[in-house]
Design a protein around this nucleic acid. Structure first.
Lengths: 334, 334
DNA sequence: CTGAAAGCGCTTACAG
DNA sequence: CTGAAAGCGCTTACAG
């Protein structure tokens, strides 16, 4: 039923080698012969078997991509960036959702190995040593996304520390001194930790002592942001501004404050991080750290492909620019 | 460098056939032999080459999944549903983003064929005949998602007509008679059209004449919703309620009204469709048609796999339940 | 410019 | 229970 090169060869009255040559344009072929082959291919709606080709060439033109989940703009942009340059270079992309869990990452890492992916792009908030060891030892080209400080493996990310530093410094410039943070959990050296570092650095430089009660660890969902904000509100002395590790957390925080009858920014100012599309839809419009996830994706894919080709890439870590998008959720305190 | 079955066979002192048997558990193997093989595999961190296996077995255990984009909860849930049952049955999933464009769908459809995907799940709002013809003629197992009335190919979807009918009937029950709709474009028989049909049916049954000025075609983004709402506001006689084809459109509509200084639901009531997570975060909380995209995904994957196995599936169309989630965005008119 | 043949890394009758 | 060999659908020196 399924038609193969052999069938085409028979129809066109040539050898399978010749068919292969016209498919791949790998060697000169007489024009009339080429025409016969092309015609046979067209008539039969023939498409070459990629599995067989990959096996023969020992190359899959497959890029494995792992991301935690998919329901936010940043990740969507990231994927589009990756896909865009992958296609440019003739690669296909295989997307796996890990929910950010190590066990899933390990699982898909092996799946990618089995399917002979030429390289892997790994977007992971909480990278465990375990996986790194695995990657290094299998020696498969790999690029990390969204994380800094991973000397072992090339990466592309934003400068989380500086970005957070700038956001919090902005809050201070607006007159805030009682500034809390809804931060991500500090498993390993995740961006969660770096954003906290930037927060701490800004406060310290301004001579402000960090109040541990105002620093709450939380998950990544809107609901997590709501719960974390509740904890802040239960402290006796409530801060005037909250820096949130992500926009989703910030939106949760705003939501909780709204339900509690508090006003943003009149009662409490909120600052987000990521610049997702909902940040400009929510009321008040959320001030946030913005950057181009598309650019991150494109840079990651480009360099992964270089790696695959055996080119030495330098630098081994790329930093994508960020900027503050100040909107309505921060109040000027005088 | 890359290690193969042959290497394992040599290390364990057996034939490659035997190694294959322990890998696949396909035939009884002496316990000590099995142990030697297992040990060699472990020592070398060996993973079988899926390309080679697939070629030999003429089976890829790969499911191609096409979705328009990825930045909303519905699609995220859908993917999780698909992945969940795929893994249960030992299948891998290859995700492609089509942006809902026919040319991309055609492109990925061929990519899936080349890579020998065992089957395809296709989530497409605007399905063109072109693609259907292609699918039928290649004879590759395929399930459509999110669309009704595609007799040619099995599908799983919600009952868009009835769901829209119920939502609009609810608006009527709340006393509204001047009801507009922000609908999706009517290319082919997309869900956009069916949701409009339900809207029209509810009005007609209630003896209300449809006002063409109040029915605006729009795209799928929040911005599209804003623009469409603007058009409604420019009509001389403004409706009291708007039924929106998706939550994103509804959020855009609410956003536009807010900017214009109009209140939802006091000035205008808004009804959404899809039940994305932001619907309960936005203020006012959005009333919407809810359904489980996870369930759609699971059903689609399950039946695709049956199709692949050659089982005859019946019915060929599955309808996933929906329900109205009434919240704050609709006002009771008396 | 073209074809016969070996090889990619597996699986699976077939024979023992 | 085990191995030698053919075959999956391609690619690519090699020879002509």
């Amino acid at each position: 039923m399924k038609i193969t090169i052999k069938d085409i060869a028979r129809m066109a009255g040539v050898s399978i080698a010749t068919v292969s040559r016209v498919i791949n344009n790998s060697k000169p072929v007489n024009e009339d012969v080429r025409m016969r082959v092309l015609k046979a291919m067209e008539q039969t709606n023939f498409l070459p078997n990629a599995m067989a080709r990959n096996l023969a060439k020992n190359k899959s033109y497959l890029l494995g991509v792992m991301i935690p989940d998919v329901k936010n703009t940043v990740l969507d942009d990231l994927i589009h960036g990756i896909n865009h340059v992958s296609e440019l270079y003739g690669y296909n992309t295989m997307l796996s959702l890990t929910s950010g869990m190590l066990e899933n990452e390990l699982h898909y890492f092996n799946k990618f190995r089995e399917i002979q992916a030429d390289g892997i792009i790994l977007a992971s908030d909480y990278l465990k040593e375990n996986l790194i060891t695995n990657i290094k030892q299998t020696n498969i080209p790999c690029i990390l996304v969204g994380r800094d400080r991973s000397d072992a493996i090339p990466s592309v990310h934003i400068d989380n520390i500086t970005a957070a530093y700038e956001a919090v410094t902005y809050l201070i410039q607006q007159g805030h001194r009682k500034i809390g943070m809804l931060r991500l959990r500090n498993e390993d050296i995740a961006s969660g930790y770096h954003r906290y570092q930037g927060y701490a650095q800004a406060l310290t430089e301004a001579g402000i002592t960090i109040n541990g009660d105002w620093v709450i660890e939380c998950g990544v969902s809107v609901e997590d942001g709501m719960m974390a904000m509740r904890k802040i509100c239960e402290t006796t002395d409530i801060p005037t501004a909250i820096f949130c590790a992500t926009d989703r957390i910030a939106i949760g925080a705003i939501n909780y404050l709204y339900e509690r009858g508090l006003s943003v920014p009149d009662d409490i100012s909120i600052y987000g991080f990521d610049g997702i599309d909902m940040a400009s839809i929510i009321r008040p419009k959320l001030s946030t750290v913005k950057y181009s996830a598309t650019e991150i994706g494109m840079t990651a894919a480009r360099n992964l492909i270089k790696l695959i080709k055996g080119e030495t890439i330098t630098p081994r870590h790329w930093v994508i620019p960020h900027y503050l998008k100040n909107r309505e959720s921060v109040r000027l305190l005088k």
